[in-house]
Amino acid sequence: MMTPFHSFHMRRMIPVLLLLPLMAIITACDHKDLCYHHKHMVKLRLEFDWSDCEDPERPDGMCVFFYPEQPGLETRRFDFTGLQGGEITIAAGRYRLLTYNNDTESVFFRGMESHSTHEVYTRSGGLFESVTRGNQSNKGIPRAEGTEDEDVVICPDMMWGCSAIDITISEQGISYICVPVKDKEEWMERPPIVTENTITLYPHELTCIYTYEIRNVNNIEHIYQATASLSGMAPNLMLAEEELGRKPVTLPFEAYSDGVSKITGRFITFGHHAELPDPHRMMLYVWTNDGKAYSFGSESPRFNVTEQVHSAPNRRHVHLIIDGLDIPTPIDPPNPDVPGAFNPDIDDWGEVFQDV
């Protein structure tokens, strides 16, 4: 038989017992919310495999951008000295990735807020950039026929890089797709790579190396300074898809005389857009030791190197050849002050037209 004392205590205990399951539910909900919003940080290693690079030249370091594909994550940039890579710590989630060398000096970047708009380009320049070491007006300087309206921009730096997609980073492991250039044709049906804690990237050349030689140059001993240009080239590169810009530009670059019979040079370019019909015409600008200035190539067929550019066996390494050039024989005696008196504003050009 329950006494009044027992009845009183039972009435007090019943509300407490009813509250216990409710407190457990509230506690469990709070725990799940905290866990859901917490960013799980994962330590992983980035490695660079350079087997896709033909040229022995290599950069001093690389940067890597992780672009998130889900809300709540932020874009991250990591920089590495050297070519090996290293360890990073990043929030678990889904990403896309871009990497390229971080030792550039001549290029600029824009659209860096997203993977698809990240772009590299160069500034406007002068046709005599290589000899004046600075920008100047291109007004009055002879141009190749049909290229007079092209913008003049400076050559880019040598660049290496690649991209990776479908990256999933979790505490259980990593999956991603980064395809070596040499394996792209065979990769289409393969699944993503799954690893425990490593992403391997395969940088390749993003810019092109062009070399040229003008052979059998007569009266070359009278040249004290020269520079050159090439028209119809791409002004920029979209890094994610490696898509070249479609507006053709003219690139100025250095020219060197061997003092015997040959003028040579080497320059870097983003390349040319294969779908555009714009011609690729070289121009050579020469100053002789009698104070005269001459231009070659404005209408000369031999300076039209379009076919050489388009048919090059390797679009990343193009070698151009122009055979035969006659430098006018000086009428006036050489001027000993000419080497120190270069005038970038000179407009009294002698345009030399030579048939094939």
Rank of each mutant, 00 (worst) to 15 (best):
D355Y: 02
P277K: 13
A28F: 11
L83E: 12
F109E: 09
N236R: 13
R266V: 11
H6E: 15
S137C: 04
T227I: 01
L18S: 14
S7V: 10
N314R: 08
P59I: 10
L22K: 15
I322K: 00
M2P: 09
Q136G: 07
G61K: 05
T117Q: 01
D347L: 03
L201F: 00
P156Q: 10
P142N: 03
H272K: 08
A312H: 03
Q84G: 11
R94Q: 14
C53Y: 00
M10R: 12
V179C: 04
D166G: 04
T99S: 06
I199W: 00
F128M: 13
I327Y: 03
S170M: 05
I322P: 14
S137A: 05
S51R: 06
L34N: 11
I141H: 04
Q225C: 10
R190F: 02
G125Q: 09
L201K: 01
T75K: 10
E254T: 13
L251C: 08
Q84H: 11
I177G: 04
R76E: 13
W187V: 02
G72C: 04
S295P: 01
C162E: 07
Y36Q: 14
E74Q: 13
I14N: 02
T132W: 00
R11M: 05
R266G: 10
I141M: 06
D323K: 10
D60C: 03
R58P: 00
R190W: 06
E148L: 04
T147H: 08
Q354L: 01
D103V: 06
T200F: 00
H37W: 06
H280S: 09
P252M: 02
D348L: 08
R96M: 11
D30H: 15
L98G: 07
A255R: 09
V64S: 06
T168R: 02
E243I: 10
R110P: 00
H280K: 12
D30E: 04
F267G: 02
D345I: 02
E275Q: 12
M13K: 04
S163I: 01
E185Q: 05
R266Q: 14
D290R: 08
H222G: 03
P336S: 15
L320I: 14
E145T: 07
Q70E: 15
L284P: 09
M13D: 07
E221L: 11
N197V: 07
F48M: 08
S300M: 05
A28C: 13
T122S: 04
R12I: 12
N219L: 01
G232F: 00
R110Y: 09
P336Q: 06
P180Q: 00
P252A: 08
E57T: 13
H222M: 00
I169Y: 01
A164K: 13
S163V: 05
I88C: 03
D33C: 15
N219S: 12
T75Q: 08
T89Y: 06
V249Y: 06
P71I: 10
H9M: 14
K247D: 10
